[in-house]
Amino acid sequence: MHFDQKETANLITRMSGTDPKKCMKCGKCSASCPSFDEMEYHPHQFVSMVVKGDVERLLASKSITKCLTCFACVQRCPRGVEPANLIEAVRVTALRQQGTCYLSPDDVPAIVDDQIPQQALVSAFRKYRK
């Protein structure tokens, strides 16, 4: 199937509800990010790569599962860019376009112990599967 990076980047931007062009490249989002060391592409790079239409690499990157959705970047961005929303839009796009899932119901029995809250599983399925 033909994959149009620009078109996909536009879709991601619309889905995120935020305007990555407002970014002034201060790096505060990445400096705030608790998962910085885990990520191949850092929050500020998600922002600039979506602006450039360079999203194929983001869609394929493990970085999309390393974001903790803690909203530190959203809170601390001085330009109101909301990098977490963009990362989520990339993740959702990957799940939808590739039909991939990062968690299967078959994985669950091995994960569950007698303490794990329902919330952990509900949120994992919301995050990792469409």
């Binding site: 903790l68 803690c70 994960i111 952990a120 949120s123 994992a124």
Partner: peptide
């Protein structure tokens, strides 16, 4: 007020442990 990594505990316990 920093994140404990609750979301990733299911798939990535090592990352949650670091947090």
């Amino acid at each position: 007020n920093e994140c404990c990594g609750g979301y990733v505990t299911v798939k990535d316990a090592d990352l949650a442990k670091k947090r």
